[in-house]
Amino acid sequence: MDTGISTSVPERTRRGINPKTKHKLKLFALMTPFMALLIAFNYVPLFGWVYAFFNYIPGAPLSQMEFAGLSYFKTIFAGGSELIPVLRNTLVLGFLIVITIPVPAIFAILLNEMRSKTLSKIVQTVSTLPYFLSYVLIFAVMFFLFSNDSGLVNTLLHRFRPDSPSVNPMASSTWAWGFQTLLHLIKTSGFNAIIYIAAIAGIDREQYDAAEVDGAGRFQRIWHVTVPGIVPTLFVLLVLSIANVLTASGFDQYYVFTNPLVADKIDVIDTYSYTIGITQNNYAFATAIGMSKSLVSILILFAANFLSKIVRGTSLF
């Protein structure tokens, strides 16, 4: 696929600046203010990482603080065997999210194929609703459904089968990973599908007509016209998601849904470091963890990008 044009300015030697160079400088100058903003708000605050190596005292100049070297980083691993299940949980939950990346895309394709445009629009709008609910509210809804004695599901269940035990996925360690992934999907799929719907909207209608003329059935049209239209986006988001595996769905979801029965399955790096760090109000420790996570994620990013180059020929950068 084309990724840019070649400058078709005739190459003439003139006195003064070569027009090609002028063009490059102009581009560069145009980018500069935006890069400045980016650096100002994303890279400048990283000076704070230096505090991960010191006994941090808020407000005091650096010279006043005791050098701590790598001791805070060592503390991360002091959890010993507590850290291993936490890492495992993070990777499993993160990986489950990665493999469900295509779900919003599939949803977008199906919406596109629906015959009734009105119904399609309604489903699309309604599917974005859960995105706007905080996890605290989703918990309230889940509780409403699955509370042991007064939950909707269990009340109905006991009316028809009085002897069966109550159903509560929030309390099940076995189903914990699946349940959390399902919740994540319900919350984000509809909203994320918007990206793919936009990508599909950009596909030339003529391609569909041409395919139909060539005798392609519905699924062949999807496979040969629609899918190639969204694959670039899908792949990019896939690479980004792989690099994000250490964060999985984010702090909020697991913090809200934790309880003693499932904690050993859904305690992730973010919630674990919160527990360890918060009891100490220990800023340097929290910074050490944040820094480690960032660096490892970026390494994974480059690795995933490299893989993408091998597999698909194109890469993120």
């Binding site: 003693p260 029965l261 050993d264 305690d267 527990t275 360890i276 009891t279 100490q280």
Partner: peptide, 20 residues
């Protein structure tokens, strides 16, 4: 000390996961 704080925090985390 920081080591004790971490040990204590881990004890809490362990207890929470095993009390029930």
């Amino acid at each position: 000390s920081d080591e004790l704080k971490t040990a204590a925090a881990n004890i809490n985390s362990y207890a929470y996961k095993n009390e029930f």
